[in-house]
Amino acid sequence: MAITATSIVKDEVKAKATAIAFLGVSFASAFCIVIVNFLSTYLLWQTIYNILSLSAFACGILLLVFVPTLREHSSSKGFALFKKTFENKDVVAILLISVCCITAHFSIYSFVQPWLANTLALEESSVSLLLLCFGVAGFLSNTLLTRYIEEYLSKIVLYAIALTAMCLLLFSVFGIKGYTLVLYPLFVIWGGCVSSLIVCFQALVIKLAKQEAGNAVAIYVSCFNGAIGLGALLGGLLLQWFGIYILMLINGVIVLIACYQYFKRFIKGGVNG
């Protein structure tokens, strides 16, 4: 998706194109579950599935009609495609940092609903509202990225990682009965930052990989999907061994370390991201 968007625009707006391409994902994450739940009160689930299937088919037709056919140009072929990408130390650094951040995020997010509903004993309406805050913040942050990502990409990544670490660490402090109101601003910050990071990491990979952008994005997507599974696995093990609040503390520290490594290489080190 992102590599297609960046292939049909000029070099100076590639990061912006990446942010725009992800707006649909952010919108779906924020609103589609709410929309489907609303429809379920009036329609049978079979009807809802039919609507979703027809919508997906219509989207496929629109893609065929409006998206031009692209040919990826690369200076290398075969296994050399990935070898050349891994020789780019800046791309490898971003991949490792993104894996740490995404793993830590999903290590907690995979279990956030039972934490809110069971551990904190929040009402179903409060749980839904918190998750909606998370999703809406993600959509709004991606909307803002379309305006500022080109000019402030490196700094946005730094601040988003730092604020994500702050949220995960504060969850272990304030995520107890009597402080649940604090969770609302934290979920807004968390949702906005994580959504921004998903877009900005991919934009950085595209920018740093240059001619090998297509191969680098393929590796990034694989790392991202692997980090989701790794996060759920790590979260389950840490939850079983130590409990939810130690899980949050450990993952907050992981993101904090990733933040330091990013600052050291891409901000203090002056790498042109």
Rank of each mutant, 00 (worst) to 15 (best):
E87D: 12
S98P: 02
T69N: 14
Y109P: 06
C167T: 14
L116M: 13
P114S: 07
K84N: 15
Y148V: 14
G60R: 00
A80C: 03
V67G: 03
G135E: 08
F106P: 02
V67M: 12
T69P: 03
R147D: 08
S126M: 05
L131N: 11
S154N: 13
L64N: 12
T103H: 06
V112P: 11
G60V: 05
V99F: 12
A104N: 09
K77I: 12
L132E: 09
F82E: 10
N142V: 10
V136R: 00
F111V: 10
L168I: 01
C100A: 15
R71M: 01
A117E: 11
L145R: 00
T146M: 04
Y148G: 02
L158G: 10
H73A: 05
K155G: 06
S125N: 01
D90L: 02
P68E: 12
L96T: 14
V67F: 11
C167A: 05
S76N: 11
C167N: 08
S98R: 01
L120M: 13
A93S: 14
V99R: 00
T103P: 10
L122F: 03
L140R: 05
T85L: 14
F111S: 14
D90K: 03
Y159E: 08
V157D: 06
F79A: 14
F79W: 13
V112E: 10
N88R: 13
L62M: 12
Y148R: 08
E123D: 07
A93P: 09
A93R: 03
V92P: 15
T85H: 06
L62T: 15
T103K: 03
L132T: 15
L131M: 14
G78D: 11
S76M: 04
A162F: 14
D90C: 03
G78R: 01
L70F: 04
E150K: 00
I161K: 01
A80W: 05
C59E: 03
L120C: 09
V92M: 07
F106W: 04
V91G: 13
V127M: 05
T85K: 02
I102N: 08
N88D: 14
C100L: 15
L120V: 12
L144G: 14
M166G: 09
A117R: 07
G138F: 04
V67Q: 13
L122T: 06
I97W: 09
G135R: 03
L95D: 09
E150W: 02
G135Y: 07
V92S: 13
E87N: 15
V65N: 01
E150L: 00
L116V: 11
S128A: 13
L168N: 05
V157W: 00
C101G: 06
A80T: 11
A165S: 15
L163W: 01
S74M: 03
A162C: 11
E87L: 04
S76G: 02
A137T: 07
F111A: 09
A137L: 02
S75N: 13
S128H: 01
P114K: 08
S141Q: 03
F139T: 07
T143D: 02
T164D: 02
S110N: 13
L81W: 05
P114T: 04
E151W: 01
L95K: 07
V136M: 00
S75L: 09
Q113N: 10
T146G: 15
L63K: 02
F86Q: 09
C100Y: 02
C59W: 07
E151S: 09
L116S: 11
Y159K: 04
P68N: 08
V127C: 10
S74R: 10
I156T: 11
F66V: 13
L153K: 12
C167G: 07
